[in-house]
């Protein structure tokens, strides 16, 4: 379908009004959209809505008990942000493993979330950090907002709970409790420019020899980035010793549902999940 309208509004309200009309493609960093359209995998809708000039979507700020990362913040900006560095080191770490400098400079966190790739680099740490997606729409005269836990946000590859008239405005990350430790691991052969064959995020609060409020997530092992509840249960409150690490890792290997694709076989992904979960838990115990 040929594009008939192009808008580049500067206010959220205007952007949402364009979105309300339907048949709209949202453009932010363009790093996913451009190759998808060029390869014919995605065709642009009748309206092309460039939201990049909506300044209020481009801030990182502290709001009561949380940090709100505007959807337009680029991966580079998040990686270098002092608030993120202080509270969400594992997110900064994931950003460092994202594509390349050129792509980190253009790609936005909103785009990474809305693109909903099972292998999306920021998604695993965001799940571990209990992130929420903040969505806005303007069905009538007023801008309305709602928040969806990210763990519920992804529906399938490329599909989310964002309604067509909604815009992802921000990612909200609650400040982690004292004693929180988080680890991110992305499997690849290079520091970056690699799509994860698997990625792992583990977080929790150290309590003596145990980890409580344990949160575990995996990338590229299911149709959506996976919050691994059974693995979390196995980890919750257990002494961080070798036996626990092996047991938790085995639970994780059982819980993930990877597929065979050209990047890795399901068997190998499960092996990686086991070996690296075990390794990370060991590192957490040593920390």
């Amino acid at each position: 379908m040929a594009v008939e309208h192009y808008w580049a509004p500067t206010s959220l309200s205007d952007a949402l009004e364009h979105l309300r009309g339907g048949d709209v493609t949202v453009l932010a960093g363009g790093t996913d959209l451009m190759p998808q359209t060029q390869a014919g995998r995605v065709s642009l809708e009748r309206g092309l809505l460039n939201v990049r000039r909506v300044a209020e979507l481009h801030r990182i700020e502290r709001v009561d008990g949380a940090v709100r990362i505007g959807a337009l913040c680029t991966i580079t900006e998040i990686m270098r942000d002092p608030l993120v560095g202080e509270h969400f080191a594992m997110l900064a770490d994931a950003c460092d493993h994202f594509a390349s400098d050129q792509l980190r400079n253009a790609a936005t966190i909103g785009g990474n979330v809305c693109n909903a790739s099972p292998a999306g680099d920021t998604l695993v740490p965001l799940l571990v950090l209990d992130a929420e997606a903040e969505l806005a729409s303007k069905p009538g005269a007023r801008v309305e907002r709602r928040r969806v836990p990210l763990a519920d946000f992804f529906v399938g590859p490329g599909r989310t709970r964002r309604a067509p008239d909604e815009l992802l405005c921000a990612i909200r990350l609650p400040l982690p409790p004292p004693g929180f430790v988080g680890r991110f691991f992305k499997f690849g052969t290079r520091p970056a420019l690699d799509i994860a064959a698997i990625s792992i995020g583990i977080g929790g609060v150290r309590d003596g020899r145990t980890l409580v409020q344990a949160r575990v997530a995996y990338g590229a092992v299911a149709a959506v980035p996976l919050r691994a509840r059974r693995t979390e249960a196995a980890l919750e409150g257990a002494a961080l010793d070798a036996a626990t690490a092996d047991g938790v890792a085995a639970t994780a290997r059982d819980e993930v549902r990877p597929i065979d694709d050209l990047r890795a076989s399901a068997w190998y992904r499960k092996e990686l999940v086991f070996n690296m979960t075990r390794r990370i838990l060991h590192d957490v115990a040593e920390a």
């Binding site: 453009l27 960093g29 363009g30 790093t31 451009m34 190759p35 460039n50 680029t74 580079t76 400098d101 050129q102 792509l103 400079n105 253009a106």
Partner: peptide, 9 residues
Amino acid sequence: VSTCSCLQF
């Protein structure tokens, strides 16, 4: 900032 012009609209 540097960027890939092939991805830039």
